[in-house]
Design a protein around this nucleic acid. Structure first.
Length: 890
RNA sequence: GGGCGAUUAGCUCAGCUGGUUAGAGCGCUGGUUUCACAUACCAGAGGUCACUGGUUCGAGUCCAGUAUCGCCCACCA
C-alpha cells in the first residue's frame, strides 16, 4: 500500500540504484535498436551544479529517456572538462592557503601531481549531482578531457593540424591575464562597465611645433608612448605632422604621425600611441615603424622601461603618474567617464593587451570546410536563427591563439632539438632528434587552450583517432544541447574539427536552450547573491519536481525567469516548483486510489480495454488520453518541454483526477459489478499510459508508481513509449462530457452563491431543447447526483420554472434549482443581472458585426453562418434570462 | 554602434498558420476536515493583451515605428 504522501527522498536513491544496477543506462541494453547518441557538454571538473546545468540536464535526460522508451539504442555519454585555468587556479589557491606557496615554489611536476590528486579527491562532484537529478547517462563510458586516451586524440589533432600547415607561431597582440599569468582568448574576455575617468594630458611641442593634448583612460600607459597620431586630413594638425612632441615624465621626444585611426571628432583629434599596450596602437605602430616599449610587465607591475615607476603595481602607477603630471602642470582636465574594461571571466582580473609570441591555428580553411553543412542545413538549429549567427561567425573567423602559459593541460607536442634546432611535432614524445640524433630535446613549455581539447569532444569521446566500434555506431551524434554562451566558442569549433578529422558533421541537431535568470530577469550568479543551488530545490521539493519545474518553464523564448525567491544565494521558496511537487503528489494519490480499488484479476494490458459503448466517461477519458499521447509526443519532437509538461499536467489533474476518477467512484460503488470492472480497467490503462508519458520528465515518481500497478515488463525506464490510438478519438464523447461539466459547474455555482450547505442535496430541474440532450443528461443522472449533489433530478422539454428557484441559462439547457426557504432573492437577482449584462455585451458586439456589410460580404460564408447562429442563441438566452429575472423580482 | 529576444491577471507564464465570452498555476476572497490527495476539493474576484499608427470585414495574433527590460557581437582615445 502506498503512503499517503509522496516522499521523494525515500524513492529517489532506491530507484536510481535499481536502474544503474540493471544496466539500463547503457546502449547495450537495447542492442537491436537504431542508435541515438548525445555527448553532454562536459562541465568543468571543478564545477558544481548550478541552475543552468540543472535545466540543461533536465532536458538531456528527458530526451534520452524518451528516446530509450521509443526503442532506440540510446547513449548519453557524460564526462568532464579539465578546465586548465580554472582547475590550476583552484589548486594554486589551496596550495597558498595551506602552505603559503605559489606554483613556482614547488615546480611544474609537483604541481601537476597536486592537480591530479585534487581531481581524484574533489573532481567531478558535478557528475554525482547529475545522478541526484536522475540523469540516466552511461557512466561506464564517462570521459575526461585529460584521461590517457583523450590526450592521444588531442595530440593527434594538433599533429594533423600541423601537417596541414595550419599551426604556426606568431607575434600578435593578445589578451594577457596578469593574475593567471597566461594569455586568454577573446571569448574569455568579459567587458565590464567601469566608472572611470578620461584624463587629458598636454604633451609640449618641440621644434616649433604645437603642444598636443591627448586623452586617455589609462594614463600609466603614456610611459610607453612612442608617438602621437592625428588624422591625415585633419586641417588643424597639418603643420604638426612630422614634428615631435616631448613625452612628459619620460622626457622622450616622440613623433606626430598621420593615421586614419585618429578620429577628428574626438577631443583634440590627436591620440597617444602606445604600441605595446593597446591593440589599435599596436597596428598604428606597425604602420609607422614606431617602437614598442613595454612598461607594464607580465605580472602586472611596471617594468624597467617605466623608469622611476619600476616595480610599482599598474594601478598604483596610474595614480602616481597622475599626481606627477599634475605637479608638472600638464594635466589639463579630468572628466568622469563610463566605459567598458576587459576582464578575465575566470578570475575577474582586468586583462592587459600585450604583444607576444604564441601558437596560432589558422581557421580560414577549417571554417570554409564547415560552412556548407550549416548553409545547406545539414545541421538543424533549434531555434533556427542560431544557425545564421553561426554562419556569420564562421565567415568572419579569426585565427585561434591556442597556447596558454599555464601548466595544467595538454602540453604542446613540439620539441626543439638543442643540437641542430630542428622542430619535432609528435604525438609520442621523441627520445632523439631525427636529424642529428641528439637526445637533447626541449618540449615547448606551453599547454593548449582547454577549448582545443573540448573541440574534439563528440568523436574523441567515442574513440577517435582509432576506428573504434563506438565511433562507427554513435557518430555522428544526434543532438547537442547547449547554452547560447558557448555556441561559437565550442559548438562551431566541434563542427569544424569533425568535418576535418572524421569528415562528418558531429551532430544532427543543435538545441540552444534558454538561460536561467532570476524572477526579475537578472543574471543568476553566486557573486550577486542571486544564485540558486539546484540541490536546495531537490532537497525541498524532490528531483522530479525540480526537473518538472525547469521543463515547465522552458519555452521558446531565450530566457527562463525562474520563479523563486532567493536571498543571499539561498532559496526562500519557489511557487512553481511547489506546484510541480504537488503534481507529483497528485498523481501519487491517484495511483494510490487506483491501487486501493484494484482486484486480483486486474492486470495491465497494452491494448485499450473494452468499454461500454454507451458510457461516455470511458470513451471521453480514452479520447483525451490518446490526444494527450499525440500532443506530448509532438511537443517533445519540437523540444517544447513547457508544452509537454503542461499538457500532461492538465490531463492528469484536470481530466483524469478531477473528472474521470470522480465518475469512476460512482461506478465502483455500483451494486452491479460490471460498470466498476470496466472503470477499473480504464483507470489502470490510462494511468499506466500517463506514467509512461511522465517518465522522461519525472522519472522517479513515475517508476515508483508504475512498479506498484499492474504492468508488463520489468521497469518503466525501458517500457515502450505510448502510441496514440486514433480510433479512440471521440468527438461525441468530448461534446457530451463538455455538457456534463458545464451543467455540473453551473449547479455548483448556484449552490455556492446561494450558500447551500455542501452536505445538503438539492433538487434540480433541467429544461432541455431536444430529445437528444435529454437522453444524454438522463444517462448522466447518477454522475450529476454525485458530482453536483443533486437529490431529485427532473429532465424534460416541458419543465416549468418551479417557484422560488435559482436559475441559469446554457446553450441547450435551462437549469432550475428550487430553493424554498434557502433562496436569497437579492443574490439571485444580482447573479442574473450580471449574466444579463454579459450577454448584452456579447450581443451588442455581434449586432455590430452582423450589421457590418463589409463583414457580410467579405468574411467566409461559414464564419457568417456561425456568427448568425451565435446571435440567435444569445438572443434566446437573453430572453430566458430576463424571464427568470422577472420571476424573482415579482 | 550593430544584431536578437521579451513586454498578456498582483507574480511566473500559455495562447499554432488572424474569426466562439483571452487561458493556466501561484497568490487573493468565500466555502468544505465528503471514505486518493488539506501538497486537497468547490466556487469567486482580477486583464483597455507596453504604446502609436497601419493592413484587414475582423488584430493579443500580421506590418512599421516608439518606449522599457535583457542578451549577444563590436578596437573607438
Amino acid at each position: 500500500m502506498l503512503e499517503k504522501k509522496y516522499d521523494p527522498g525515500s524513492v529517489e536513491a532506491t530507484w536510481y540504484a535499481f536502474w544503474e544496477e540493471k544496466g539500463y543506462f547503457s546502449p547495450e541494453f537495447q542492442a537491436a535498436g537504431k542508435a541515438y547518441a548525445i555527448t553532454i557538454p562536459p562541465p568543468n571538473v571543478t564545477g558544481e551544479l548550478h541552475m543552468g546545468h540543472a535545466l540543461q540536464h533536465a532536458i538531456h535526460d528527458a530526451v534520452v529517456r524518451w528516446k530509450r522508451m521509443q526503442g532506440y539504442r540510446t547513449l548519453c555519454l557524460p564526462g568532464t572538462d579539465h578546465a586548465g585555468i580554472a582547475t590550476q587556479m583552484k589548486v594554486e589557491q589551496q596550495l597558498f592557503a595551506e602552505e603559503g606557496k605559489g606554483r613556482h615554489d614547488i615546480g611544474r611536476e609537483t604541481m601537476l601531481g597536486r592537480i591530479v590528486a585534487w581531481k581524484q579527491q574533489y573532481g567531478g562532484t558535478i557528475l554525482k549531482q547529475l545522478r541526484e537529478m536522475g540523469c540516466s547517462y552511461d557512466w561506464d563510458r564517462e570521459r575526461y578531457t585529460m584521461d590517457r586516451s583523450y590526450a592521444r586524440s588531442v595530440l593527434s589533432a594538433f599533429v594533423r593540424f600541423h601537417e596541414r600547415g595550419w599551426v604556426y607561431r606568431g607575434r600578435r597582440m593578445v589578451n594577457w591575464c596578469p593574475s593567471c599569468g597566461t594569455v586568454i582568448s577573446d571569448l574569455e574576455v568579459e567587458e565590464r562597465e567601469h566608472e572611470g575617468h578620461l584624463w587629458h594630458i598636454r604633451y609640449p611641442g618641440l621644434e616649433g611645433g604645437p603642444d598636443v593634448v591627448v586623452a586617455t583612460t589609462r594614463p600609466e600607459t603614456m610611459l610607453g608612448d612612442t608617438g602621437v597620431a592625428v588624422h591625415p586630413e585633419d586641417r588643424r594638425w597639418q603643420r604638426a605632422i612630422g614634428k615631435r612632441v616631448m613625452l612628459p615624465i619620460m622626457d622622450r621626444p616622440i613623433p606626430i604621425v598621420a593615421d586614419r585611426y585618429a578620429d577628428p571628432e574626438m577631443g583634440s583629434g590627436a591620440v597617444k600611441v602606445t604600441p605595446a599596450h593597446d591593440p589599435n596602437d599596436y597596428d598604428i605602430g606597425l604602420r609607422h615603424g614606431l617602437p614598442e616599449i613595454q612598461v607594464i610587465g607580465f605580472n602586472g607591475e611596471m617594468t624597467g622601461e617605466a623608469g622611476a615607476y619600476r616595480g610599482m603595481d599598474r594601478f598604483a602607477c596610474r595614480n602616481a603618474v597622475i599626481a606627477d603630471l599634475k605637479e608638472l602642470g600638464l594635466l589639463e582636465r579630468i572628466e568622469d567617464y563610463e566605459h567598458m574594461v576587459p576582464h578575465h571571466d575566470k578570475c575577474g582580473t582586468s586583462i592587459e593587451p600585450l604583444p607576444m609570441d604564441q601558437w596560432f591555428l589558422a581557421m580560414r580553411s577549417l571554417a570554409d570546410q564547415a560552412l556548407p553543412a550549416l548553409k545547406k542545413r545539414k545541421i538543424k538549429y533549434v531555434p533556427d536563427r542560431f544557425r545564421e549567427y553561426s554562419v556569420e561567425w564562421l565567415e568572419n573567423i579569426q585565427d585561434w591563439c591556442i597556447s596558454r602559459q599555464i601548466w595544467w593541460g595538454h602540453r604542446i607536442p613540439v620539441w626543439t632539438c638543442e643540437g641542430c634546432g630542428k622542430m619535432l611535432v609528435r604525438v609520442d614524445a621523441p627520445d632523439r632528434c631525427d636529424a642529428c640524433g641528439s637526445r637533447d630535446l626541449a618540449q615547448d613549455p606551453d599547454v593548449l587552450d582547454t577549448w582545443f581539447s573540448s573541440a574534439l569532444w563528440p568523436f574523441a569521446t567515442l574513440g577517435w583517432p582509432d576506428q573504434a566500434e563506438d565511433l562507427k555506431t554513435f557518430h555522428p551524434t544526434d543532438l547537442m544541447i547547449t547554452g547560447r554562451d558557448i555556441l561559437y566558442l565550442w559548438v562551431a569549433r566541434m563542427i569544424m574539427t569533425a568535418v576535418e578529422f572524421v569528415d562528418e558533421i558531429p551532430f544532427g541537431t543543435v538545441l540552444v536552450h534558454p538561460t536561467v535568470q532570476t524572477r526579475d530577469g537578472k543574471r543568476m550568479s553566486k557573486s550577486l547573491g542571486t544564485g540558486i543551488d539546484p540541490r536546495e530545490l531537490i532537497k525541498r521539493y524532490g528531483a522530479d519536481a525540480t526537473r518538472l519545474s525547469l521543463l515547465y518553464q522552458c519555452g521558446s523564448s531565450q530566457d527562463v525567469r525562474f520563479d523563486a525567491d532567493v536571498v543571499d544565494n539561498h532559496l526562500q521558496d519557489s511557487p512553481i516548483t511547489e506546484s510541480c511537487r504537488n503534481f507529483c503528489n497528485k498523481i501519487w494519490n491517484a495511483a494510490r486510489f487506483v491501487q486501493m480499488n484494484l482486484e486480483r484479476d486486474d492486470v495491465h494490458s497494452a491494448a485499450t480495454p473494452q468499454v461500454d459503448p454507451f458510457d461516455t466517461a470511458d470513451r471521453w477519458i480514452l479520447s483525451q488520453y490518446n490526444h494527450t499521447v499525440c500532443a506530448v509526443t509532438g511537443s517533445l519532437e519540437a523540444y517544447r518541454f513547457d508544452e509537454a509538461s503542461r499538457t500532461l499536467y492538465e490531463f492528469v489533474w484536470n481530466a483524469y483526477c478531477d473528472w474521470y476518477l470522480e465518475i469512476a467512484k460512482v461506478r465502483l460503488n455500483d451494486v452491479d459489478p460490471e460498470p466498476g470492472t470496466t472503470a477499473r480497467r480504464v483507470l489502470v490503462h490510462v494511468l499506466e499510459g500517463a506514467l509512461r508519458l511522465l517518465h522522461p520528465m519525472a522519472p522517479f515518481v513515475s517508476e515508483a508508481l508504475w512498479q506498484q500497478l499492474p504492468h508488463s515488463g520489468e521497469a518503466l525506464i525501458v517500457a515502450k513509449w505510448p502510441e496514440a490510438d486514433r480510433r479512440r478519438f471521440d468527438e461525441t464523447a468530448e461534446r457530451e462530457m463538455a455538457l456534463l461539466r458545464k451543467v455540473v459547474g453551473t449547479i455548483r455555482n448556484i449552490r455556492g452563491t446561494m450558500r447551500v450547505p455542501p452536505g445538503r442535496r438539492a433538487d434540480v430541474h433541467l429544461k432541455v431543447n431536444s430529445v437528444e440532450v435529454a437522453n444524454v443528461l438522463t444517462r448522466f443522472e447518477v454522475y450529476l447526483g454525485a458530482l453536483a449533489r443533486v437529490a431529485d433530478l427532473r429532465i424534460g422539454a416541458d419543465i416549468v420554472r418551479p417557484p422560488a428557484s435559482a436559475s441559469a441559462v446554457l446553450k441547450d439547457v435551462e437549469i432550475f434549482v428550487p430553493l424554498q426557504g434557502l433562496i436569497d432573492l437579492d443574490l439571485e437577482r444580482k447573479r442574473l443581472k450580471k449574466e444579463i449584462e454579459k450577454m448584452e455585451a456579447l450581443l451588442g458586439g455581434l449586432d455590430r458585426k452582423l450589421s457590418n456589410t463589409g463583414f457580410l460580404n467579405n468574411a467566409p460564408a461559414e464564419v457568417v453562418t456561425k456568427e448568425k447562429g451565435r446571435h440567435a442563441q444569445y438572443r434566446s438566452a437573453l430572453g430566458r434570462l430576463n424571464e427568470n429575472l422577472e420571476a424573482v423580482t415579482s
